[in-house]
Amino acid sequence: MLEVFICDDNAVFRGKLKQLLENTILREKLDLKITISTKDPEEILDYVKANNVTGIYFLDVDLKNEMNGIKLGEKIREIDSRGYIIFTTTHLEMSYLAFKYKVEAMDYVIKDDDDFKTRVNSCIIKAFNTYYKEGHNKDYISINTDTRIINLRFNDILFIETTGTAHKIRIHEENRQVELYGNLKDIQKKLTPNFYRCHKCYIVNKDKIEEIDKKKNKIIMTNGEECYVSFRYKRGLLL
């Protein structure tokens, strides 16, 4: 899923920006979460390095740190090539640096402009729509709940399992789990061919398998999570 990051040395502004983004996420029912809001650029870099994420980054240009926002954006781009970087600043004259460092920023928003809120809202909605609909390919599933619309990209799904609750299933991604009402038979019809029904309780994304323990009939996924394959379906998985 898409994660949102804020880096700004001004605690008051940082809090206002976070509240603005949270309101937009709630109002537009966006399947996003604000993962880190900090003044420390290294905190964001450490997280992005340790986790396989695509992010939306709101970076202050002047962080009053050894690393300014433009340099942070450059380092983020090296790790997260698909991320959406938005610079926020009062220094319009520094915008040329984003081009100099080849950050490929999505936008450059001036903090004290009258249309700041509108620009920020536009950026986060555009990033969200681009991530899920780029190329106009239907490579995701949309799940409409009472509070939000959850878009699950096929490539982000590790496996799907039944739960202890009747007619409820759980979808596992790298960094989260989503529960919804449904059954494996119906959801499998919406999936791509790389998803395989390996057990009466599991559907696995074959592209996300790290290892298969044939003795224990166990599948280890790329993030270390485990699911099971039955004897009946093992042969088809190993082909």
Results as ranks from 00 to 15, higher is better:
Tyr47Asp: 02
Arg197Phe: 00
Tyr108Val: 03
Leu97Asn: 05
Ile171Ser: 00
Asp31Phe: 08
Ile70Leu: 08
Val229Ser: 05
Phe195Trp: 06
Leu180Ala: 05
Gly55Thr: 04
Ile143Leu: 14
Ala105Arg: 00
Lys200Glu: 10
Glu173Pro: 04
Leu32Arg: 14
Asn144Ser: 12
Met221His: 04
Lys218Ala: 08
Thr130Leu: 10
Glu43His: 15
Lys117Val: 15
Arg197Val: 03
Ile76Glu: 03
Asp46Gly: 13
Ser37Asp: 12
Ala11Ser: 06
Asp80Gln: 15
Gly236Lys: 11
Ile85Asp: 00
Ala98Cys: 10
Asp40Ile: 09
Asn217Leu: 09
Lys218Ser: 02
Phe87Glu: 01
Lys190Gly: 02
Gln188Thr: 03
Lys71Leu: 08
Phe159Lys: 01
Lys214Ser: 09
Leu239Ala: 13
Gly236Met: 15
Lys214Pro: 03
Ala50Pro: 08
Lys100His: 10
Asn175Thr: 03
Glu43Thr: 12
Leu59Cys: 07
Asn137Lys: 14
Leu20Tyr: 04
Leu30Val: 09
Ile149Cys: 12
Gly15Leu: 02
Ser81Ala: 04
Gly55Glu: 00
Thr165Glu: 12
Phe13Gln: 13
Gly83Tyr: 00
Lys71Glu: 15
Ala11His: 07
Glu78Phe: 09
Thr38His: 12
Glu66Met: 01
Ile219Pro: 05
Asp60Met: 10
Leu2Cys: 05
Val53Ala: 04
Pro41Arg: 04
Val120Glu: 00
Glu225Asn: 14
Glu179Ser: 14
Asn137Glu: 07
Cys201Glu: 12
Lys190Ala: 05
Tyr101Thr: 01
Val61Met: 15
Asp80Glu: 12
Lys126Asp: 00
Lys39Thr: 09
Asp213His: 11
Thr38Asp: 03
Lys75Met: 12
Thr165Trp: 07
Ser37Gln: 04
Glu161Val: 13
Glu66Ile: 03
Lys117Ser: 14
Glu22Ala: 08
Arg27Ser: 07
Thr130Gly: 12
Phe5His: 05
Phe128Trp: 10
Phe154Asp: 00
Glu225Cys: 11
Thr192Gly: 02
Glu74Tyr: 02
Asp207Val: 03
Thr118His: 14
Asp40Trp: 06
Thr54Trp: 01
Ile56Val: 11
Thr162Trp: 11
Lys111Gln: 10
Asn194Ile: 04
Glu134Cys: 02
Lys138Phe: 04
Asn23Gln: 05
Asn129Gln: 12
Lys218His: 03
Asp115Cys: 08
Ile209Ala: 03
Glu66Val: 02
Ile85Cys: 04
Asp115Phe: 05
Arg77His: 10
Ile187Arg: 14
Ala166Gly: 02
Pro193Glu: 11
Thr222Lys: 05
Lys200Trp: 13
Asp80His: 09
Lys71Arg: 08
Asp31Trp: 13
Tyr131Gly: 00
Glu93Ala: 06
Ile141Thr: 07
Asn175Pro: 07
Glu93His: 01
